[in-house]
Structures are given as structure tokens and as C-alpha cells.
Design a binder for these strands. Structure first.
Lengths: 209, 209
DNA sequence: ATTATCTATAGATCTATAGATAATGC
DNA sequence: ATTATCTATAGATCTATAGATAATGC
């Protein structure tokens, strides 16, 4: 059937199918033949919608980051909570597709992130946070969120606990003790880390202003 | 020449050669045939030293992280500087081989990291930092360092400046202003971010103790 | 005329194994 | 006997292009 009445392929369906493969079978399983099969078409047909393989991967990365909701919150003195929410949302978006983490690194969608940072910067301004802190806050939250997400993504299992791959108390006694001391899940730790970072970043100003 | 007098291949030489290829030609260029050529041998000979391709990549990841020096510093009240150094060293190790970032994600050498965390945890204990903060500090520094390194690794060029891929002042006015406000290099920002994180993490304790 | 699929296929490439061979070291 | 290379090769696999074909929409 050379041209179907209704198109069989769309960009959105291709991205969804790619993520389904990567989520359930791993990044190694991804390839054009595999993807085409999942869509019920032949591999060359994909080239009608994407110029090459890497364009598909970029669209996938774009989709993962683009699914991050922005916080709905009014500017004001409790502005740090906006960033706790933002960071957590970003982290969660990445972790939702943990097998895709390396793709995200190679095709980090700067435009999508930049769009969000513009909104966040405007929020900071409206909250009266000093301009010299803006970049520090934006980049700090980004790095904590992506760092936490990528590291968590890679420590495979869905254990809520913080450092997953069993630490041997015989050879790492101090670290094992530190882990035993901790009761928070890695999500809770992450929020706390964000709050602490924000508190430390504004510590000088708050006293001096 | 079926067996040479002196072995042509060693694990260390293989890892070095791999990094040379990845650093200068990119991750895509890496492969067993390419690697073998660089070492002056035939591809199958590599299987005498590694069980498969993925074992080579693990060794590469191990080498990158393993090259991170631990701070030489005595425990004491200025213990946060130990972690500023540690974080910076870790970040620098990763950035030294930025093209290898995706490998690092897929083959993160937990053992090598764990070894270092054990030492750092002992340092915290010796400095009298409360045990419940240990995991928060270790994981926070790890995530900031890896997050910063991976994100920087991916924002290609060696510009010292913070957010590289040109932000358009027309469409992102607030963000552009925030960037203009900033004079620090991403290395400097990173150290500051670490200090602020550590300050925020200990803020409660310092008053209460 | 354009669009969205298909078939066929070039061509590259890669991972891994089997089995031969000669140097080494006990 | 063991070690470290080689040659030869199976076999899979993948990306991308060329050209045919039929449905669509102007």
C-alpha cells in the first residue's frame, strides 16, 4: 500500500514509540528497524518525517524536558519554594525515562531549557531577588536537578533509598554508618538539598538587606 | 607475527588509546576496529584482554573517575573547603574527557566513588560534623559536581562563560540581563555553589550547637 | 502535482568466535 | 603447556538512498 488514506507516522507518534522502546527494552534496543516495527511501517519511511536518526533522538530529548511543568506560584518572599518545585519537576521528568539519560546528555535541548529559565528569571525579578543572584540560582538548581536525576537514573533499581548498590560495612564502615543514619528517600533528600542550597545562596543578602 | 616478544596490548594502554580517540574524534568514532588500529593490532586481539566491548568502556569510566585526587587537608572547622576541593576535582576529572560523558553515565564506577566517599565520611566524622548531615553532604556534593560536569561537558565550546549557547536578548530579555550581570566563569560559579550549598546545609546546626 | 508509503539494496560497520601459529616460561 | 598475537569469517545489523506506486488535495 504505497500511500495510506491516513498517515501511519507522525513526529509525535514516533517520539512516543521511541520512548516506549527505550523505557521497556533499554537504550541498546533502540534503532530504526526496531522503531519502524513498533510503528508498523518499514524503516525507510521514517526518513520522510525525520532527516536522520539523530533528529529522532533530539525530538525524544525535547519531549522529555518539555514534559516538565513549570510551578504555578506567585512571586513573593517564599520564592525559594518555586525553585524547589521546579527542580523536583525537572528531576522527575528525567527519571520518568531513566534509560534515556545518555540521549539527554547528547541532545540536551537548550532552547526548551532556556525558555523555562526565562520564565524563572522573570519570577526572581518579580520577587525582588537581587539580580546578581539570578544566574547563581538558575544554574545551581539546574545542576542539582540534572545531577541528581542522572545519577539516580543510573543507580538502576527503584529503591527509594539513597545510595543503592549495597555498601559493604566491613570495607566501608564510616559510609555504612552514615547511610544507616539516613531515613530520607532520595526524592526527599533532593528537596532538602535544594532548600539548603537556596538558603546558603541568599544567606549574605538576607542579613545585609 | 603470532606472538610478539613484548606484548603489544595492555589494559592501561587500551584505556589510554580509547580516551585519545574519544577526546580527539568524539564518542561516535570509538569502536573496536578503530581502537585496534590506534594500538597497531587487529581487532580480535583485544578479546584476549577484555571479555567484550562493554568491559573496555567500564575500564575507561573507571580511569576517568579514578584520576580524581582526594584533597589533602586536616579535619577541622574549615572542613567545608575539603568538599569544595573534592567537588572541583571531580568536576575537573569529568571535564578533562568531556566527550566521554555518556560513557560515564552508562558505566558509572560505583566502587571507585564509594571508596572516595568512605574517606570523605571519615573526614567528616573527624571534623566533628553531626552524623545526620554526612549523607546530605556527600550526596549533595556528588550531585552538584556530576551535574555541573555533565552539563558543562555537553555545552560544547571551551568558553569560560556560564551559559554558552547564545541567549537571544530579544526573546529572553530577563535571562539575558541575568547573564550580563554575571562575571564569574563556570568554574568559579561552581565553587561558589558548593560553598553556598554547604553553608545552607549546616546553617541549622551551627546555631543550635 | 504532491505526499506518504513501499521494495530493493548498497555499503558500511561492527561484535565475536574458531582455529592457526610462534614466542615464552616452566 | 601457556600466552599473545594473527587470519578468516559468520552473522547480524544498521543507516541511508533510489525509484516505484497509489492516494490525496488543489
Amino acid at each position: 500500500m504505497p500511500r495510506p488514506s491516513k498517515p501511519l507516522i507522525s513526529r509525535a507518534a514516533t517520539v512516543t514509540a521511541s520512548l516506549e522502546i527505550i523505557d521497556s527494552e533499554g537504550l541498546e534496543a533502540f534503532g530504526l528497524p526496531r522503531l519502524a516495527k513498533h510503528l508498523g511501517v518499514r524503516p525507510p519511511s521514517l526518513y520522510h518525517h525525520f532527516s536522520d536518526r539523530s533528529e529522532i533522538l533530539s525530538a525524544v530529548a525535547h519531549e522529555i524536558i518539555g514534559a516538565t511543568p513549570m510551578p504555578r506560584r506567585r512571586p513573593g518572599p517564599d520564592w525559594p519554594e518555586y525553585f524547589v518545585t521546579f527542580g523536583s519537576n525537572l528531576r522527575r521528568s528525567v527519571l520518568r525515562h531513566r534509560n534515556a539519560a545518555p540521549i539527554l546528555l547528547q541532545h540536551l535541548p537548550h532552547d526548551t531549557l532556556t525558555e523555562r529559565y526565562e520564565e524563572a528569571a522573570a519570577f526572581l525579578e518579580a520577587s525582588g531577588v537581587p539580580a546578581r543572584l539570578h544566574i547563581r540560582i538558575l544554574l545551581g538548581v539546574e545542576r542539582l536537578a540534572l545531577g541528581a536525576a542522572l545519577v539516580d537514573a543510573v543507580r538502576r533499581p527503584g529503591t527509594g533509598s539513597a545510595l543503592s548498590p549495597r555498601v559493604d560495612p566491613a570495607t566501608r564502615p564510616t559510609l555504612a554508618r552514615a547511610l544507616a543514619e539516613n531515613e530520607a528517600t532520595s526524592g526527599q533528600l533532593f528537596e532538602e538539598m535544594l532548600r539548603n542550597f537556596l538558603r546558603g545562596t541568599t544567606a549574605d543578602e538576607i542579613e545585609s538587606v
